[in-house]
Design a protein around this nucleic acid. Structure first.
Length: 702
DNA sequence: CTTACCTTC
DNA sequence: TCTAGAAGGTAAG
C-alpha cells in the first residue's frame, strides 16, 4: 500500500485546483482510504453554502496558537450549543427526521464529519459569541489530540452549560472516535437536550427534528429569513433560546427534577452502552440457524405433502385458499361447534391467525404444521439472522432510544434485544432422531456471551409493576402479600390459590399464566380477551375477574382514581411526576375513551416502574464509577433487568453492590417519594445470557 | 390489558 | 418496482 508519496501527490493536485488557503490540506494527507478523502472534499466543497466562513473559525485552518485561543474561548464560555454535521452537510438540527433504519451510526451516505458549536461568552450584555467548526476526521495526530482534549474539557466542565439536540448521538460519535474514560463520561457529561425536554412535556408528540420542535415552541424571533446560508449558526443560537423556554415549561409542569436527575444523567450512560456493545457467539448462532433451517425445510415439505401440491406458506391468501376452499376446515368447524370462525378486522376475510389455527387443529394436521412453521421462521429470521447481520467484529451494538416510548421505558433497536425469547421449544428432526416426539430447546440468549475472563451478571427487579400497584393503590391484601416474608414469589403464591395445588407443583408455565392473568385483569381486560388468554368460557372469565378484583378492592379504587384525575387535569402522573397527556379521556366515542382509560391506568404503573429502573441504572453506574478498582460495565437494560459484564474476580463484589444499590428504594426514589413496598432484586450470573443461574448457587457450586 | 420492535405480505 | 400499513409474533410488566 503506497503511503505518503502517492497520497501527497493527490493532495497537491487537489490543492492547486481547489483550495488555496494554507493549512487546510495538511490533514488530508494522512487520510488512509480514498473514499474518506473524497468524502471530506465533497463535504468541504459544500461548506460555504452552509454557513458564512468568515464568521466561523475552522479548526483545520487554524494554526497552533489560534487553536489555543479558541480552546480558551470555549472553556471560558457560559453556554455552548453543539451539533453534529454529516457528510451530506445536513446537521442534527436541519436534517430530515431520523428514521429508525437510517439511524445506524455509519450509514454510508451520511457520516458524522464535524461538530459545529457556538460558545457564548460570560458577559451577559455583550452577548459575545464565537462559532467553531471542529472536524471529526482530521487524521492529524496533533489536531486529533487537540479535538479530544477540547471535548474532554468542555463536556466534563460543569460550569459550562451545553445544549445539543440529540446529545446521545453526539456522545456516541465522540466515544467511537476518541478515547475517553467511560467512568468520567457517565458521571460528568451532562448536556441539555431539547428533544428530551420536549418528549417529557408530551411523549406522544415527540418532535423528530429541531425544525419540528421550534415550530411548536413558537418563539418570537425564529430565524426564518436565513435562506440556508447562515442556517446552522442561526439554528444553534435559536436552540439556546428554545432550551430556555423548554426548561421553563418543564419547571411549570413539575418535570424539571425528573429531567435533570434522571433523563439527562441517562444520556451518557446509554451512549457508553451503545459504544461498548456485547459479545456474540457467532458460531453458536450460525449453528442454531442451520438447525432451524433444516427443520423449517422439513416442516414445509411435510405441509406440501399433506396438501398434495406446493403453495406459499407465508402467504395468508394462499393459506386461506388451502385451509378453507380446499380442505373446507371452516365448514367442518362450524358443523362440529356450531360457530363460525373469526374474520380479519379490516377485510373481513377468513382469518388464519394463531387462535383460529389452534381451533382447527382437531380437524386436520395442517394447522399444527403451519403454527410450527411460523414459529420457526420467526425465530430464525428475527433472532438468529436478524442479530447475525448486525454483528461487527463479534460485537453487537444496539441503539438505545430514550424518547421512543410514551411510557418512559427505554427501547432498543437495530436489533431489538429486549424481545429475545428465553427459550424456543422445537420438535426434533423426524428422520435422524430415534425417539419420536423428542424436543430440542434453542436458547437464542446463549448467543450473548461475556468476554474472556468475564461473567455476565443480571439483576432483576422482582414483579416490580405489581409491587408498584400495591404501593400506588395501598391495597391492604396486596400489600400484605408483599410484606409477608413467607411469600417468595407472588405469582407462584397466587397460582397455588388459583389451582389449589402445592407450591412445589407449580410449573413455570403455570406461573407465567397466572402472571398474564393478573396483569390482564388489573389493566382492565375485557371478558372476551380474558377468556381467550385463559382458554375458558366468557362467563368463567367474568366470574374470575370479579372474584379477583373483589379480593383486592383498593386496586379497583386506584383504577377509578387514575381515570378521575386524568379527566380532571387531562393527564396522569408517575411517582417521579412523569406525565402522559390523554385528551381522549374525554372523548364521546366509547372505544376511544375506554382505550384512554386503560392507557391512563397502565401508564401510572408502567411509567413508575420505568422511573425506578432508570434511576437504578444511574445509581448502579455511579456506584461502579466511584470504585476505581472495578472494571464492571453495564451493557444492557431489559426493562426491569440490568445486564452487566464483570471480570471473574469482581463478581462477588459487584453482586453485593447491585443488591444494596437496587434494593435501596429510598435512594432510588430520592426526593420523589417513599415506597411502602420493598422491591427485591434477584441476581443471576452466567457465562452467557442463556444460562444464568442464581448468584449464591453459582458461588457454592463453583 | 398496556408498552415496545421486527418481519411478512 | 416501491412503499405504507396491517397482521402476526416476540418481549417486558
Amino acid at each position: 500500500m503506497p503511503r505518503c508519496h502517492d497520497i501527497e501527490g493527490v493532495t497537491n493536485n487537489k490543492q492547486k485546483t481547489r483550495h488555496t488557503q494554507k493549512g487546510f490540506q495538511v490533514p488530508v494527507k494522512k487520510f488512509k482510504a480514498v473514499d474518506q478523502l473524497t468524502l471530506h472534499q465533497s463535504y468541504a466543497r459544500k461548506l460555504p453554502s452552509v454557513y458564512p466562513p468568515k464568521d466561523l473559525i475552522d479548526v483545520l485552518k487554524a494554526d497552533d496558537s489560534r487553536r489555543q485561543q479558541v480552546a480558551c474561548q470555549i472553556n471560558k464560555a457560559k453556554t455552548v450549543a453543539l451539533t453534529l454535521v454529516y457528510s451530506d452537510c445536513s446537521t442534527q438540527l436541519s436534517g430530515a427526521a431520523t428514521k429508525t433504519k437510517s439511524s445506524k451510526l455509519h450509514a454510508d451516505d451520511k457520516r458524522p464529519v464535524a461538530v459545529i458549536l457556538v460558545a457564548m461568552a460570560v458577559e451577559e450584555e455583550s452577548k459575545q459569541h464565537v462559532f467553531v467548526h471542529v472536524p471529526l476526521y482530521s487524521h492529524v495526530s496533533i489536531v486529533d489530540e487537540w479535538i479530544r482534549k477540547l471535548f474532554q474539557d468542555l463536556m466534563s466542565n460543569r460550569s459550562i452549560s451545553k445544549v445539543c439536540f440529540g446529545a446521545q448521538k453526539l456522545m456516541h460519535v465522540l466515544l467511537e472516535l476518541y478515547t475517553f474514560n467511560s467512568r468520567e463520561v457517565c458521571s460528568k457529561w451532562q448536556v441539555d437536550d431539547p428533544k428530551l425536554a420536549a418528549w417529557l412535556l408530551d411523549a406522544d408528540h415527540c418532535p423528530h427534528t429541531f425544525t419540528e420542535l421550534s415550530e411548536t415552541i413558537c418563539i418570537q424571533q425564529a430565524p426564518s429569513d436565513s435562506k440556508g446560508r447562515y442556517k446552522v449558526c442561526d439554528d444553534l443560537l435559536h436552540m439556546l433560546e428554545v432550551m430556555i423556554q423548554l426548561r421553563r415549561k418543564l419547571e411549570e409542569s413539575c418535570l424539571l427534577q425528573l429531567y435533570k436527575q434522571v433523563e439527562v444523567k441517562l444520556i451518557p450512560i446509554l451512549a457508553v452502552m451503545e459504544t461498548l456493545g456485547i459479545s456474540i457467539d457467532t458460531k453458536l448462532l450460525l449453528q442454531y440457524g442451520k438447525t432451524l433451517q433444516e427443520k423449517i425445510n422439513e416442516v414445509e415439505k411435510e405441509a406440501m405433502d399433506m396438501v398434495g401440491y406446493s403453495f406459499n406458506i407465508n402467504s395468508n391468501p394462499q393459506l386461506r385458499q388451502v385451509l378453507f376452499d380446499e380442505l373446507k376446515l371452516d365448514e367442518k368447524y362450524k358443523q362440529s361447534k356450531g360457530k363460525a370462525l373469526a374474520r380479519t378486522a379490516v377485510l373481513q376475510s377468513k382469518s388464519t391467525s394463531e387462535s383460529v389455527l389452534l381451533k382447527l387443529k382437531p380437524f386436520h394436521g395442517l394447522p399444527s404444521l403451519i403454527l410450527e412453521y411460523r414459529q420457526l421462521v420467526k425465530v430464525k429470521s428475527t433472532f438468529i439472522d436478524g442479530i447475525l447481520e448486525k454483528i461487527e467484529n463479534g460485537m453487537l451494538h444496539t441503539c438505545w432510544d430514550q424518547t421512543a416510548a410514551s411510557s418512559g421505558r427505554l427501547t432498543s433497536t437495530n436489533p431489538n434485544i429486549q424481545n429475545i425469547p428465553k427459550k424456543v421449544l422445537m420438535n426434533a428432526m423426524k428422520d435422524e432422531s430415534a425417539i419420536e416426539g423428542s424436543v430440542v430447546t434453542i436458547k437464542p440468549r446463549e448467543g450473548f456471551k461475556a468476554a474472556v475472563g468475564k461473567m455476565l451478571i443480571a439483576a432483576d427487579f422482582q414483579s416490580i409493576e405489581l409491587r408498584l400497584l400495591a404501593h400506588l393503590s395501598q391495597d391492604a391484601s396486596l400489600l400484605a402479600v408483599f410484606n409477608n416474608p413467607g411469600v417468595a414469589d407472588i405469582f407462584v403464591e397466587l397460582t397455588t390459590h388459583w389451582l389449589g395445588i402445592q407450591k412445589e407443583n407449580v410449573t413455570p408455565m403455570d406461573r407465567d399464566r397466572t402472571k398474564r392473568i393478573v396483569y390482564s385483569v388489573f389493566y382492565g381486560a375485557g371478558t372476551e380477551r380474558l377468556s381467550e388468554t385463559l382458554s375458558v368460557t366468557t362467563t368463567q372469565a367474568k366470574e374470575l375477574r370479579s372474584s379477583f378484583l373483589a379480593k383486592f378492592p383498593q386496586v379497583k379504587q386506584f383504577t377509578a382514581d387514575c381515570i378521575r384525575k386524568c379527566c380532571k387535569q387531562g393527564f396522569v402522573e408517575t411517582i417521579f411526576h412523569r406525565r402522559r397527556l390523554l385528551p381522549n379521556i374525554k372523548s364521546a366515542n366509547f372505544h376511544d375513551r375506554s382505550f384512554a382509560e386503560r392507557q391512563a391506568v397502565n401508564f401510572v404503573v408502567q411509567g413508575s416502574a420505568a422511573d425506578i429502573c432508570k434511576s437504578a441504572m444511574i445509581d448502579v453506574v455511579s456506584e461502579l464509577a466511584s470504585r476505581p478498582d472495578l472494571k464492571t460495565q453495564l451493557l444492557v437494560q431489559i426493562h426491569d433487568e440490568l445486564l452487566l459484564e464483570s471480570p471473574d474476580e469482581e463478581v462477588n463484589t459487584v453482586t453485593e453492590l447491585l443488591e444494596s444499590v437496587m434494593e435501596c428504594t429510598t435512594h432510588l426514589c430520592s426526593s420523589f417519594t417513599t415506597l411502602t413496598v420493598p422491591i427485591p432484586v434477584s441476581i443471576t450470573v452466567g457465562k452467557t445470557w442463556g444460562d444464568m443461574v442464581p448468584w449464591r448457587k453459582y458461588t457454592t457450586t463453583k
